[in-house]
């Protein structure tokens, strides 16, 4: 058999099976992940026995993993951290269900999947009741909202017709927006008496305005 000389630039292919040597970095990563999972399983078993330090280490190492898992499934990045926290709280609530004889990652993955599905259901339900607004209908800058009410004269007259104590109390506390202490210092009335006077004044005003404008 005559073998032709290889063309310039030709590199002979690996004679070993590709899967064994082609991706050493990938293999190392898989081994790392396996080691990590074994370590987490060990720490979780310790946490189940009440080892708070092992539990703190475990949760700290799991945090970026849980964040990645949640972000892959949760559609809105702005509140994905809420879901991450719910996952951690649920993990804490069901930590007794982990069996150290079983692999750790499927257990964690099931908790993440459950919390994300629960969050999506809740979000779907809320979406039915709420509507996103592009513009909030604010009126405090519009002319109409700031036009003096046509009822102002009748309100003024009603305030004027109040007994002296009630009139002064409502003018200071409601119209000039003084604090109870300031109004108390100005009038010599106790804050309690002022509150009662304001309450009675408003009740009287309602009665007067209702009588004038049935």
């Amino acid at each position: 058999m005559v073998r032709r000389a290889p063309a310039p630039g030709y590199v002979e292919k690996e004679k070993f099976p590709v899967c064994l040597f082609a991706h050493p970095a990938h293999m190392l990563e898989t081994m790392d992940r396996r080691d990590e999972a074994a370590r987490w399983a060990e720490w979780m078993a310790a946490a189940q026995d009440g080892d708070g330090a092992a539990y703190a280490r475990l949760l700290a190492e799991l945090l970026p993993v849980v964040r990645r898992m949640v972000r892959r499934r949760w559609p809105r990045p702005e509140d994905s951290e809420d879901v991450v926290q719910e996952v951690l709280l649920t993990l804490h609530a069901v930590r007794h269900t982990y069996d150290p004889a079983r692999p750790f990652l499927p257990w964690l993955g099931a908790i993440v999947a459950h919390r994300v599905a629960d969050g999506l259901r809740r979000h779907g339900r809320q979406g039915g009741r709420e509507r996103a607004l592009d513009e909030v209908p604010e009126t405090f800058l519009s002319v109409e909202a700031n036009t003096e009410s046509v009822d102002a004269p009748s309100l003024r007259a009603a305030v004027a017709s109040l007994p002296e104590g009630q009139r002064r109390a409502v003018e200071m506390v409601k119209l000039r927006e003084m604090s109870l202490e300031e109004a108390s210092a100005a009038t010599g009335m106790t804050p309690g008496a002022l509150k009662v006077a304001v309450h009675r004044a408003i009740k009287s005003l309602k009665a007067i305005l209702a009588r004038d404008d049935p």
């Binding site: 946490a47 026995d49 009440g50 080892d51 703190a56 007794h96 269900t97 982990y98």
Partner: peptide
């Protein structure tokens, strides 16, 4: 939150 949970790591009865 993690600190709070770790502080609350009472022993649990494994299922």
């Amino acid at each position: 939150l993690i600190e709070t949970l770790a502080a609350d790591a009472a022993p649990v009865r494994r299922l």
